Amino acid sequence: MNRPTLTAVLGDITAQRVDAIVNAANTAMRGGGGVDGAIHRAGGPEVLADCIRRFPDGLATGDAGWTTAGALPATWVIHTVGPNHSAGERDRGLLVSCYRRALSVADELGAASIAFPLISAGVYGWPKDDAVDAAVATILATETAVDEVRIVSFDAAMHERVQRRIAAG
């Protein structure tokens, strides 16, 4: 186990050539909007079919599990359910758990590289600076066999926030 190299990437998470792409899923595990919708669209019907097969009852907030990546340029999608701050789910421990559990699943799969979105920072309304801090601090503090971790931001302002937080350590 080691500490992975952590980098900020500006771009589309569905285009990342890594072993595993992390999906900010909802508890139903049947696709949705934002990152979840983009991953399901880019991955194709195999991702949804695998979600239905592996997670017939969905997935709990803070937990993670994997499916095929379908047509994505990755081998696996690691789905994790972040807390919905806008709906009153404000336990930061659940957000931290998403990153820890996703890295644990990556270790179980033998993934050497992984790309994360900022979990709960979109439609789920987690305050952006705290979402960035939770992601970076948790990834840097988690023992894992993963060598490379990317935090992928779709917009330049968020990318700059992530870069600044990584540089701060």
Rank of each mutant, 00 (worst) to 15 (best):
V132K: 06
S153G: 05
L118S: 03
D50K: 01
A135K: 06
E148L: 13
A121S: 15
V9K: 15
L48D: 11
E46G: 07
T75H: 12
D147M: 06
L48M: 12
E148R: 14
V18A: 04
G110M: 05
D133Y: 12
N2I: 11
A28C: 13
V35A: 09
T142H: 10
A102M: 08
S120R: 12
L6Q: 02
R150I: 01
R41N: 13
T67Q: 07
N26M: 05
A71R: 15
A112N: 13
A15E: 15
A134G: 00
D19Y: 02
I166K: 02
L95Q: 05
V18C: 02
A38W: 07
L118E: 01
G169K: 03
G110E: 01
F154M: 11
V105E: 00
A157F: 12
V146D: 03
T68P: 10
D107T: 04
S86P: 00
R92M: 06
T14H: 08
E89G: 10
L94P: 01
I139F: 02
D133L: 12
G93H: 04
T14F: 10
F55Q: 07
V81S: 03
G110Q: 05
L109S: 00
G125E: 06
A60H: 13
D50N: 08
A49E: 13
G125W: 02
H159A: 11
A15K: 15
R164G: 10
A121C: 06
L140I: 05
G70Y: 09
R53Q: 13
L59V: 09
F116S: 03
W66I: 06
G37A: 06
Y99V: 09
G169D: 05
T144E: 00
G32S: 11
P56M: 06
G169V: 03
H40R: 04
A25K: 01
A87C: 07
L140H: 07
C98Q: 03
I39Y: 05
G70C: 07
T67H: 04
V35R: 06
I78F: 04
G169S: 09
R17S: 12
V136N: 05
V81H: 06
R101A: 13
Y124N: 13
L94R: 15
T144D: 00
G11V: 10
A38F: 09
T142V: 09
R54V: 12
I21A: 02
V18P: 01
A145D: 14
M29H: 11
H159E: 08
A87I: 08
A167W: 01
S113N: 02
E46Y: 10
L94M: 15
R30D: 09
N2W: 00
A157H: 13
K128R: 15
V136E: 01
H85W: 15
A15T: 15
M29E: 11
A25S: 13
A60I: 09
D130C: 07
I13P: 04
S104N: 12
I114T: 02
T61L: 08
A167E: 15
T80G: 02
